[in-house]
Design a protein around this nucleic acid. Structure first.
Lengths: 157, 157
DNA sequence: TCGAACGTTCAGTATTTACAAAACATTCGT
DNA sequence: ACGAATGTTTTGTAAATACTGAACGTTCGA
């Protein structure tokens, strides 16, 4: 994000990158997403993103694929031949949060295994795991409704 | 988690470690938390954790501090002198999720800046950011209630 | 058919970072 | 007061990984 871009835009892009880093994902992937959130037009090719970010084609190619796998961007049918255009995928953030919920579910299962590991132990020793188990159960029960709400809210626009 | 521990316990500990890695945190921190979730007694000293995990004191010391900062474990008043005991902090997972919400709030602010960045542009170009903004607003509005529910549920046990 | 444009893949590099080993500080028992 | 036990801090290292550059394959236009 160096060439022909405003300072504010650069800052925005970098902040999305830093957010990605906080989440344990490659910063460059975040930067690509940042570009595709404010680009005009919304769909951009690999090379265009390369130029904007002053980064190598290989990075962009690989990280774009990662973003596609995560459901945050998508490839659009290209008018120009030999050019792959990517854009932010509508509803992508919902997909993102569903994946987060998936991790919580995984953790839920782990705590279940932990509890069964302790069934010969006195109850007070199981309290820690029981607390986790109850929490994640509740989240797994309530969070999907929130996601559905978001889904509806988005589509009724 | 090698000495005097069952295979299942080792597996459990390692799974918490892997979960941490997924979340972008050091695996060793997750392993410590894993130990403190199933240990008997619940409170363990640095050296005890070292032995269980067959890891270095420095790792354990540093990662334990990280877990304290994150609100997942706490130091307990020690009976034995010169020994710092740590245990899982009741309600720690709620703190953890509050921090997640904090990241979402940060992202919310970033998108706001992104929108103001685009206010000279036509509306359809702002759609992407508006979608993100609306989503995170909603999460910020609804998620705290869920956390409070969890808090109450936990304390009325 | 040749060359140019574009994206992908592969190999290499440089940076980060998780972890360990050692030196250090502190506190307590003797 | 000394030495042992415990935790902290610092330094070093090995491994992971983010990123680059170059080679490659493909497709299209001239």
């Amino acid at each position: 994000m160096v060439v022909n871009q405003s300072l504010e835009a650069m800052h925005f892009v970098e902040d999305i990158g830093l957010f990605f880093e906080q989440m344990g994902l490659p910063r460059m992937a975040g930067r690509i997403l940042g570009v595709l959130l404010i680009s005009d037009p919304p769909a951009q090719s690999i090379t265009e993103i390369c130029e904007k970010l002053q980064a190598s084609k290989s990075s962009i190619s690989i990280m774009a694929r990662l973003l596609v796998e995560r459901g945050l961007i998508e490839q659009v049918a290209s008018s120009v031949p030999r050019r792959d255009f990517y854009r932010f995928k509508p509803g992508g953030w919902i997909v993102y949060m569903r994946q987060w919920l998936g991790l919580i579910s995984a953790l839920h299962e782990i705590t279940e295994r932990g509890i069964s590991l302790m069934d010969s132990k006195p109850v007070e020793l199981r309290g820690r795991l029981q607390e986790a188990h109850d929490m994640f159960s509740y989240v797994e029960q309530e969070f999907p409704a929130l996601l559905d709400q978001l889904e509806n809210q988005r589509q009724n626009k």
